[in-house]
Nucleic acid binder design. Structure first.
Lengths: 198, 198
DNA sequence: TGCCCCGTCTGAACGTTGTTCAATGCACTA
DNA sequence: TAGTGCATTGAACAACGTTCAGACGGGGCA
């Protein structure tokens, strides 16, 4: 019995995550409704709470998937130009980040919009994925600076990631100023070329 | 009567904005409650809707004040070093931006967290203030590039603003990685010095 | 086989939201 | 003073996440 129940729970978890992802992708994080999801999954509202702590837990499950795909997209992009100069690899990664955010704006925004103010801990996979992403960025930077001061690479890594993130964030925020795609790429190239210029 | 009523409305608008600002400053945008505000202002819940379209309208009023103060803070900072080289003026502005966000995190976040998905137009003062801010940034950049290609200054302005914004945003997001203040300043200086280096 | 027991699942109910609108009150005019 | 029209009220509404007492059902024991 125990195994059977566990399987059902796992299956429901999967179903709910899939349905939630579809909603977030289509209409944004704020369109998630417990009752709607329960209807679509063919279960009771309460069943959601047998499988997730609350709606935030469900959102985190969706974000886990998104984060994985984002990481893969960036990794693949840099792998394709593995032999290019460090600056070009950085640009390729940043453009890939832009591509992903641009192709999945709602899922991407959900990564940062999830409410974590309550005492819930940041999931460990969150920090791990972020660490993996930072490691990929750090590599070309390390090649550009073979003899760095302590912490210098880390500072540059965070600065560059944050900068690209900011450009993508405000660029996609069409309410403030819808920036055409090629201009965003222009900003990213401008920034990275300047910063990494010896 | 008409004038008297108008005055009362104006006074209520002022009172509500002030109270809302206090709440946002202390506990963030999501802590705004229509009933709480009405209690504190000594009016009925419905009265709020005589003065604002909805809660988003009230939030926009709060953001209007915040935007004004932010602009003044940045302007003052750059005015103090008006004779310094362009790069130093850019750094002074960015540090001032960081200072403001750091000193008023909840009010600052509210500037970007306000829900505008509904068809409500972006208020014209929003674009105006943003344009003013961009103009301040563009000036040192124009000095650094006396003979720019068309649109180049604008692209640089947006790229730099977005980058600094991203650094401040992720740096203050303590859930992801609480970055100490001096490291954030380090990132900003690193970025701006590199980007503006001839 | 039949019965009981215990964990699972259900969905009505709860407490809070923002928002509305019929009813009330009030100030000013004729 | 009676009448009129708009400002103001706050109970009611719809929708939300979340809970929990009870219905349900399957596995172990007599």
């Amino acid at each position: 019995m125990a195994r059977d129940t566990t399987k059902r729970r796992e299956a429901l978890r999967e179903t709910l995550t899939e349905l939630a992802e579809a909603h977030v992708r289509a209409d944004g994080l704020s369109s998630l409704r417990a009752r709607t999801l329960a209807n679509e999954a063919g279960c009771a509202v309460g069943a959601i709470y047998n499988v997730f702590d609350d709606m935030t837990g469900l959102t985190l499950a969706v974000n886990g998937r998104t984060f994985g795909r984002l990481g893969k997209h960036v990794s693949d992009a840099v792998a394709k130009v593995a032999n290019a100069p460090p600056t070009d690899r950085l640009i390729a990664m940043a453009i890939a980040y832009l591509e992903f955010a641009s192709a999945n704006p709602n899922l991407w925004r959900a990564l940062f919009d999830v409410e974590m103010s309550t005492d819930r801990d940041v999931p460990e996979w969150y920090m791990q994925e972020l660490g993996r992403l930072f490691a990929i960025i750090a590599q070309p930077l390390a090649e550009l600076h073979p003899d760095p001061e302590p912490g210098e690479i880390d500072l540059m890594t965070r600065a560059l990631f944050s900068s690209v993130h900011g450009i993508v964030l405000l660029g996609l925020e069409n309410r403030i100023s819808a920036v055409p795609r090629e201009r965003m790429e222009g900003m990213i190239e401008f920034l990275l070329k300047r910063v990494t210029a010896s």
